[in-house]
Amino acid sequence: MSTATDIASVDTVTAADRGRRWSAVVADFCRRRPLGAIGAGVVVLMIVVALTAPGIAPYDPLNIDFAAMLAPPDAAHWLGTDAYGRDVLSRIIYGSQTALIVGFGAAFIGATAGAVLGVGSAYFGGRTDLVVQRFMDIFISFPLIILALAMVAILGNTLPNLIIAITVPMIPRCSLVIRSSALSIREMPYVDAARAAGYGHARIILRHMLPNVMAPYLIMLTSFLGQAILLEASLSFLGLGVQEPTAAWGLMLRGAAVEFAETAPWMALFPGLAISLAVFAFNLFGDSLRDALDPKLRTG
């Protein structure tokens, strides 16, 4: 009995088990949450469309064709043209690029910054936590759109600034949610073990705590995607977002709704549908993701 080669070596997990995991998780998600899978499908479709826009768009979205001004949907222009004769379908296809860049950019930066702040705030606790959270409370007390409008007004409306403007109001919302789950992670013995091992604060926060709040992080991220797209459309519609002649859904609505709502309804209808569909798809996917991840949150 001099050594500890007892016994504990029984291997219960086979390699096949582990290889199967990813595809099995995806298949399981599709089977249990068909709505979420549809949402995910639309999201994937949007990404594909945005990436292949130059290949699939029938026209250049900026190409002005006075011969075809305000043409209703027909064989040449499936979704019609706008007041400058630009093809609506092509502009919607290219608009998805703007929507996704702003959506993913803002949601990713917002959720990530919020997560780091939330985890850090929970980890340090005490006075740091108090100060950070009260500061966040101030931001949360403004409605999303008001804060975004104010940010755009301050920063000016280039695309990067637009992303920042949409990001800022998201950070405190995410940090609040992430902090609450980080508080329970902080009490886990493995975080104590990391402290007892003499690790630095940054290592504990980034390597030991952050990966364990992935579930709420992903949920926040997907819900922000929809919100960010909607917010970008709203700002563009108000004339404070993307500027002409860039193809953006909100901008298309603006031009359409102001003058041509009755004479050329397709100009407003199709971009509007695109916005609704995108936001709806992201929300469906996000909701299903939350349902799928939540039980795992509870059981650790």
Binding site: M188, P189, A193, A196, A197, G198, P211, N212, G300
Partner: peptide, 20 residues
């Protein structure tokens, strides 16, 4: 000093980081 003093916890489920 922490190197020299280590700890073994009660709960083998929560004392290991599930993501590592």
């Amino acid at each position: 000093v922490r190197r020299k003093i280590q700890v073994i916890f009660q709960d083998p489920y929560s004392s290991l980081n599930p993501r590592m």
